[in-house]
Design a protein around this nucleic acid. Structure first.
Lengths: 174, 174
DNA sequence: GACCGCATGTAACTTGTTACATGATTAG
DNA sequence: CTAATCATGTAACAAGTTACATGCGGTC
C-alpha cells in the first residue's frame, strides 16, 4: 500500500524520498506511519517496475528526485478505483486521494462502503444482544464492564464512520 | 501482541488453538484478526518460554490443550499495566482485559490516554487551521474536498475515542 | 568544534499472510 | 458418501521496524 501512497503523492510533482516522508507524515501521517526503512526500498521497487524515474541532483547532498511516469499513474488510478476495505486504514489512504477519482466510481465506492459499515453494525448489535442476555445470568456482571465497553466501542466507531462517509458524500463542508 | 491476547484468553481456562481462534474472532475479532498461520507459531513460542503448558488430549482428533502458567499470567499483567498506545488498536486489546487490572492503574492509564488524545486533537486542529487558510488562496478549493475530509475524520475519530474513554472511566453503562 | 537538519541507504529481525498438506469426526 | 467442521501444522512470501552507517551543509 505504501507504494500507492507514494505514487499518489508524486502526482503533485517530483519529490525526493526525504520530502516524501515529510509530506506523508504531515498529511496522512496521523493514521499511516512510514519509516525510511520501508520508504527507500519501496522507491527502489517502484523504479524497478518503471512506475517512476530517478533523477540524481547535482546540488550536492546527493539528493534524488522521483518522478511519476504515466504507467505509474495508471497503476495508481486502478488501485484508487478498487473497493474500500473495512480495516487497516486502507479506506482512508484511498479517500485521501479521491479528488483524483471520477465522481461515478467515487459515489459507488462510498455507497458500497456504507453497506459494509451497516453490516458490521448489525453484527456487533447482535453480539451485544447475546452478551447482555448472558450477563443477566451472571453473579457479578460488573466484572465484565471493560469487555462490554469494547463492543460499545465497535458500535460507536462504525457509527462515526457512517456519519462521516454520509457527510463527505453529500459534500457538507461544515 | 498476539501472545498477550492468547495469555489473556487463557485466564478463563485452558483451551485449544482452534478454540482460541474462535474466541478471539468472536470477541476482539472486529479489530484484531488472527490466522492459524500466526496462532500456532505463537503458541509454540509461549510453550518454549514456559508461559503455558501443552496437554495432549486422547479424545481422538489429537487436540491440544494450552494451560496458562503463573509466570505467563505475571507477564500478561505486566503487559496489561503498560501505557495505552495511540495507534494499531493496542489500546483496545488492553482495555478488553482491563477487568483484570487494579482500579488505580486502570484510571491512571485511561487518564494518560485521554491526554494523548487531546494532544492529537490539538495537533489536527492546528493543521486544519493552516490548511483552511491555504485553501482560501487556491483557485478551486473544491478540488481538495477529500483531502480535507480525511483531516475531519481524524478529528471526529479522536473525539469519539475521547467521549468513549470518558464514559467507560465513569462507568456509565448506558 | 559540536550539533542539528538534510539526505540516502542496508541488515537483522519481527510479525503476519496465504496457501498448502494432512487427517479425524459428524450431520445430511 | 460427501460435505462441513474440527484440528494442527509448515513453507514461501510480504511488509514493516529498529538500529546502524555514512556524509554534507549551516549555525551557534
Amino acid at each position: 500500500m505504501l507504494e500507492y501512497v507514494i505514487l499518489g503523492m508524486l502526482i503533485e510533482g517530483p519529490m525526493s524520498g526525504y520530502d516524501l516522508k515529510k509530506t506523508i507524515d504531515s498529511t496522512v501521517g496521523f493514521f499511516y506511519k512510514v519509516s525510511f526503512g520501508s520508504l527507500y526500498p519501496a522507491l527502489k521497487r517502484l523504479a524497478a517496475k518503471e512506475w517512476v524515474t530517478v533523477t540524481e541532483m547535482e546540488d550536492s547532498k546527493n539528493k534524488k528526485l522521483y518522478t511519476l511516469l504515466p504507467v505509474g499513474k495508471e497503476a495508481f488510478l486502478i488501485w484508487l478505483a478498487g473497493p474500500l476495505e473495512l480495516s487497516r486504514n486502507d479506506h482512508l489512504s484511498k479517500i485521501f486521494f479521491f479528488d483524483y477519482l471520477d465522481e461515478e466510481t467515487r459515489q459507488r465506492r462510498l455507497t458500497e462502503y456504507q453497506s459494509k459499515l451497516e453490516g458490521q453494525i448489525t453484527q456487533i448489535t447482535a453480539v451485544q444482544q447475546i452478551v447482555s442476555g448472558e450477563l443477566q445470568n451472571m453473579p457479578n456482571p460488573e466484572n465484565y464492564h471493560y469487555r462490554v465497553s469494547v463492543l460499545t466501542y465497535g458500535l460507536e466507531f462504525y457509527n462515526m464512520e457512517k456519519r462521516w462517509v454520509q457527510a463527505i458524500q453529500e459534500r457538507n463542508d461544515h
